[in-house]
Write a protein that binds this DNA or RNA. Structure first.
Lengths: 348, 348
DNA sequence: CGAGGCCGTGGTAACGTTCCCACGAAATCA
DNA sequence: TGATTTCGTGGGAACGTTACCACGGCCTCG
C-alpha cells in the first residue's frame, strides 16, 4: 500500500555519489564539494528524502528527544512550563516527550524508565521522590525544576525566585498602605512554605515589623484550603481593614469566596494578594492581584540548562527566575485615604 | 564516566543462551521453555537490562511513539485532551510527543515533519489547514480531533457532540424558565459556530420558538469578545430578565464582567450559560453554569481510534463524545418565581 | 519401526545512519 | 622535483534489536 520511504542510499544513487558523501552533505559537514553537496540536496528533494531519526540515534547516540516529567499537564502552571520547554526544544530541532506523574512515585519511576528506553538525550524533572535514589539511578543528563528541587542542592535546577517574589509582594502591600498583612500558607510539610516564610521574616525585620504579631493560617494549596483559612482569619481579626498575602492563587481565590460569604467586600474590607499567576485570577471578581511565576521562562531556561548538562558543562547550580506583579483589583489603596503610620514608606 | 548500557547480548551470555532466545524471552514470545525464560529474565534483572526502543523501532518499524499536535497546550481544554491521550497511551506502553501549533500552518507542517522523522507509529492532530493536502502527504496513520475535523469527513476523527451539548443546554435553560435565550456566538468563519447554530435552530423549532426573534451577537472566542458582545446585547435588550447562552466559557466570563459593569447582577438580572467547562468557571462569581466538553475522554478515545488505524482497522467515521452540564450559580430559576408561559415545560 | 510434524534453539541478515579508515589527487613545503 | 600534508571521497563496520531460516530432538501417526 504505502511505498518504502527513501533512504540515504536512494539519495546517493540518484546524486551519483557514495552514501558517505550523501550523509556528509545532508548533515551539513564541511568536507564536501559545493557541487557535490548541491547535487545531493537536489536529489534528496527529488526523492522526498527525510532523515530517519531512529537510525541517527542508533548510530550517533543522539536521538533529538527530550523528556519532561511534571505532576500534571492539566495544571495551568505546569502547562506553561511545558509550553516554554516545547518551544525552546523546537528552536533547537528537538522534540519533547511529556509525562504526568500525579505526585505518584510509581508513575514517576515508570516514566523515567520509559525515557531511558526511548534513549532521550536528557530530561527535565519535577521530582516526586524525597530521596535521591531514583534520580541517581536515572543515568541520563537531567535538570530539576520547581521548588521541590531544593531538596537536591547538588543538582542543576531551575525554579522561581521565591525570595524576590515575596519582596515585590511585600513592597506592593506596603506601597498600598498595608503594613501588617496576614498570611495564608501551605502545608507545613512543603519546602516552598519554609522558603516563603523565611524570606517573609527577613523582609519584616527590614521594615521593623514583628512577624510574630502577624496572623497566620495554614491550609492545603487548594481553593478549599484557602477558604477555610480565610474563615479562621476572619474569626480572629477585628481590625478595620484586613490585608492577606496568600501563598498560592487557588488559596487566594478560595479566600475571596470566604470574604464574600462573610458579608464583607473585597477590596473595600479585605485586600487579597495571591501568588502564582493562574489565568483564573483574571476572571474572579475583583480580579486577583498576584505575584506571577514565569512558568514559560522556567521551561525555556530548564531546556537551556539541560543542553549544558548534555554538553558536559554541568553548572550544578540553582537558577532562580524572577517573578512579577500582576495588578488587578483585589487590593485597596490605603495609602491615599489614611495617614501613614510610618514616615519614609514612599518610594525612594 | 558512564558504563556502557547492557544489551540483549550481555543478557544472553549471562543466561547461557543465544541472543535469539533471550530476545524471545524478553519480548514475551511463546516458543520458549519456561526454564529458559526464567533464566533470561533473571539475567536481565541482574545486569540491569533495559530494552533499546530505538533498535526495536529500527528493526520492527514500531517505535512506541505517538504524536499529538494541538493548538496550545496552555489552553485548559487542550491540556485535558493531552492528559487523556497521555494516560491512554501509557496504559499501552506508548509515549506521547506533544506539539503546539498556535494555529500556524508553518509550525504545523514543521511538527508533522518532526513526527515523520521520529518515525512515530501514528498521530492525533487538530488540523490548522483548510485543505487536505498537508494531511494527505503525512503518510502515517492519524486521527483528527476537535470540531475543525468536520472539514475532513472522510477521515477518522473524534470530537465533542455539539448537537447533544446544545440540547442539554437548552433543556436546562427551559427547565429554569428561560424560554427565549439570547446567543453569543463565535466568529462566522468557524465551523463549530455553524454546527452550534444549526442544532440550536432545530431545538427552537421543536419547542415552537422562532429562532429569528432571538437576540444574537458575534465575537471572538475570548473574554474580550464576550464582553463586547454582552454590551451590545444589553443595549438592545429591555426585558425584565435576560438569559444568554454563550458558545464558549471565556466569552461567558467576559459577558459576566460586562453585566457587572452595567450595574446589573448575575444571576438576578441576567442568567448566563457557558460552553466548554474551563476550570476558571468555578472561580468566577457567581460560578459559571456550563456545558462541559469531555476533554480527557476525547483524548483517550482518540488514542483508541488511532490504535485501530495503526492496526489497519480504519473506522473512517466521526466519533462524537457526549457533553455534560455543570450547574453552578449563573442561572436564575424563573420557573418557581413566575407563572409559566407555556404548559408542559416541567420534567416528564 | 520409519516418516513427518512440531517445538525450542541458534545463526545470520537486515533496518538506516554515522564513524572510522584508507585511498587517490591536488596542493604545499623543503 | 620529491616528500609531505590536505582534501574529498568511498568502503566497510558498527549501533541493538527482530525477522527469518535451518537444525536437531522429540512426539505422533501410519
Amino acid at each position: 500500500m504505502q511505498r518504502r520511504r527513501p533512504t540515504i542510499i536512494d539519495v546517493a544513487q540518484k546524486a551519483g555519489v557514495s552514501k558517505s558523501t550523501a550523509g556528509r552533505a545532508l548533515s551539513g559537514a564541511s568536507n564536501v564539494t559545493d557541487e557535490a553537496r548541491e547535487r545531493v540536496l537536489e536529489a534528496a528533494r527529488a526523492v522526498g528524502y527525510e532523515r530517519n531519526d531512529l537510525a541517527v540515534g542508533m548510530r550517533s547516540g543522539r536521538t533529538g528527544l527530550l523528556g519532561l516529567v511534571i505532576p500534571d499537564i492539566t495544571n495551568p502552571f505546569w502547562a506553561e512550563v511545558a509550553r516554554g520547554a516545547q518551544d525552546r526544544a523546537a528552536e533547537n530541532g528537538m522534540s519533547l516527550l511529556v509525562f504526568s506523574s500525579d505526585w505518584d512515585h510509581g508513575r514517576e519511576a515508570s516514566h523515567l524508565r520509559a525515557l531511558r528506553q526511548a534513549r532521550v538525550d536528557g530530561a527535565i524533572i519535577n521530582p516526586v521522590a524525597d530521596n535521591f535514589d531514583d534520580l541517581d539511578r536515572f543515568g541520563l543528563p537531567f535538570v530539576l525544576i520547581g521548588s521541590s528541587a531544593e531538596r537536591f542542592p547538588a543538582t542543576s535546577s531551575v525554579g522561581s525566585d521565591i525570595a524576590q517574589a515575596v519582596r515585590i509582594g511585600m513592597d506592593h502591600l506596603v506601597s498600598k498602605g498595608h503594613h501588617a498583612p496576614a498570611l495564608i500558607l501551605g502545608p507545613k510539610s512543603r519546602i516552598a512554605r519554609a522558603r516563603f516564610l523565611r524570606t517573609f521574616h527577613e523582609h519584616c525585620v527590614e521594615r521593623d515589623i514583628d512577624p510574630a504579631a502577624l496572623p497566620m493560617e495554614d491550609g492545603e494549596y487548594t481553593v478549599e484550603g484557602g477558604h477555610a483559612a480565610m474563615k479562621r482569619l476572619l474569626e480572629r481579626q477585628h481590625a478595620r481593614h484586613l490585608a492577606v498575602f496568600a501563598a498560592n492563587d487557588l488559596m487566594a481565590l478560595g479566600a475571596m469566596v470566604a470574604v464574600r460569604e462573610a458579608g464583607l467586600r473585597c477590596p473595600e474590607d479585605v485586600s487579597i494578594l495571591g501568588f502564582d499567576g493562574v489565568p483564573a485570577g483574571a476572571f474572579s471578581w475583583p480580579g486577583l492581584t498576584t505575584v506571577a511565576k514565569p512558568g514559560r521562562e522556567i521551561g525555556m531556561r530548564a531546556v537551556d540548562c539541560l543542553f549544558d548538562e548534555i554538553a558536559g558543562r554541568p553548572e550544578h547550580g540553582r537558577v532562580f527566575m524572577p517573578c512579577r506583579l500582576i495588578e488587578r483589583g483585589s487590593l485597596a489603596d490605603l495609602s491615599l485615604s489614611q495617614p501613614m503610620r510610618k514616615a519614609g514608606a514612599g518610594r525612594g
